[in-house]
Nucleic acid binder design. Sequence first.
DNA 1: AGAAATTGCTGCGTCGCGCAGCGGAATGGT
DNA 2: ACCATTCCGCTGCGCGACGCAGCAATTTCT
Lengths: 146, 146
Amino acid sequence: MDRDKLMDALVGQALPEWAIEVVSLNSVVAAQLGVTDTDVQCLHVLGQYGPATPGALARQVNLTSGSASRMIDRLESAGCVRRVPDAADRRKVLIEPTEEGLARVAAAYAGLVERTRADLSGFSDAELATVLRFVRSAASSTAASR
Amino acid sequence: MDRDKLMDALVGQALPEWAIEVVSLNSVVAAQLGVTDTDVQCLHVLGQYGPATPGALARQVNLTSGSASRMIDRLESAGCVRRVPDAADRRKVLIEPTEEGLARVAAAYAGLVERTRADLSGFSDAELATVLRFVRSAASSTAASR
DNA sequence: AGAAATTGCTGCGTCGCGCAGCGGAATGGT
DNA sequence: ACCATTCCGCTGCGCGACGCAGCAATTTCT
């Protein structure tokens, strides 16, 4: 298989199919946790980047501030999130994930993490580094396309 | 960086962050096209795997048959999709994407495709093959986790 | 031929979302 | 020091996507 074929197989097939599965999985996990797709996305953001204000969260998950406010209400009453007043700026509220919230999403993804580690066990160190380099650039390029 | 660090960087950071960006981008594209997140997901499925019945589509995008029916109504009146009766089984209806529908989603992702091709230009043929191998296994593992 | 299962489609209630507007808090200009 | 402006998060309100239950049409099983 020559270079162009490889490129096309990646950009035209493998990556789109993977993206479809990722989005689908998100829906399934959300239903499984009894919350909205947007809610799990919010929990992911909190888990990856730490506490954030409702406004920042709203921008991250592509919501208006009003909808973010109610999303936080849901997550809070579900015990996944906590509202903490910001001492430096008393208008702001910091949203931080609870241990239970993080544990619940982690549990939902435990199977996938396990499978992925198994997949990666067949790769050499150099290949792992290559994959890491690609995934990082892909994340960056995806973010730039928003 | 040793092997364990590489693994953790991938499974614990790079991959989750990429997934967050993918889901976010889907929302943005949906809003940009003036349709629902679910609708674009459906268009992706149709674009990747070809025509399908409403029932199969409903299972793919995690919807009930009733909701899928109305989703198809929306996509049809938006000119993105066509209902074609199945000659073999007259209960069934085949949903096939229109040229316009495929073109619209393709246009929405043109920027990302361009960026990704640019990213990949820095990879050797062997590295490309490694990435392809990983992406395929990841797609499969993600599908298995649903 | 009759019963049972399958497929897709419609009322109806629920709920997440955007929009517009609110009060409280910080910031800049005079 | 004062007031206007801006920013932040939070609430009414209507819209619309969704799940649930039930329907007719068709196929399949006995």
